[in-house]
Amino acid sequence: MHLITQKINIIHSRFVPLNIENVDTDQIIPARFLKATTREGFGKNLFRDWRFENDDEMKPKNGFVLNDNNYGGEILVAAKNFGCGSSREHAAWALQDFGFKAVVSSFFADIFKNNALNNGVLPVTVSESFLRSIFALNENESLLIDLEKQQISIPSKGLSENFDINAYKKNCLLNGYDDIDYLISIKEDIIQYEQSIV
């Protein structure tokens, strides 16, 4: 099997708190930036309309967390129902291209979750109370995500919580495996299935 994504296991990093519910993929990347025919370069338009004043000037908007130098890191933390709306995988590409390796929320929309997993961006679902503990941290603290153990922790507070991930997907991420290679490898089964239903 060839590797499509970076292997993921431990992510230990500071985080960017985006305490907004129902962040839809139109915000993550607006439709007018979906015209590319390759997967690269979407990071510069991540949260475009929240980040910049308008298209002509590209002046950073005050008060948006990605423009706040106090925050940074490889983990985005968002309030519930992250990634709802359009199925555009460009949202996952933009997050990855910008440098995020994981997104933490109390609730992910289905299609986004799959898209993230297929691009080596780990969606970590935590309880509402754990999410509140993260949002209460100051900007210098970090989070530790251990995929093997399926655990996310706030080291400075000695807090941790386990998260769910489908065993198959976990194995893919740990090893950098790709679903398409797997599906191609079982083509005989697929052909047999097709013959069995006619």
């Binding site: 995988e89 799959n114 898209n115 297929n118 489908n166 679903d179």
Partner: peptide, 23 residues
């Protein structure tokens, strides 16, 4: 009938299949 991302579009083009968990 459901929406999918582009990686999944590639899977369907390549194999007419997807990996799915039952909702």
């Amino acid at each position: 009938a459901f929406g999918i991302g582009t990686s999944e579009v590639e899977m369907v083009l390549a194999t007419q299949c997807l990996l799915q968990s039952k909702p």
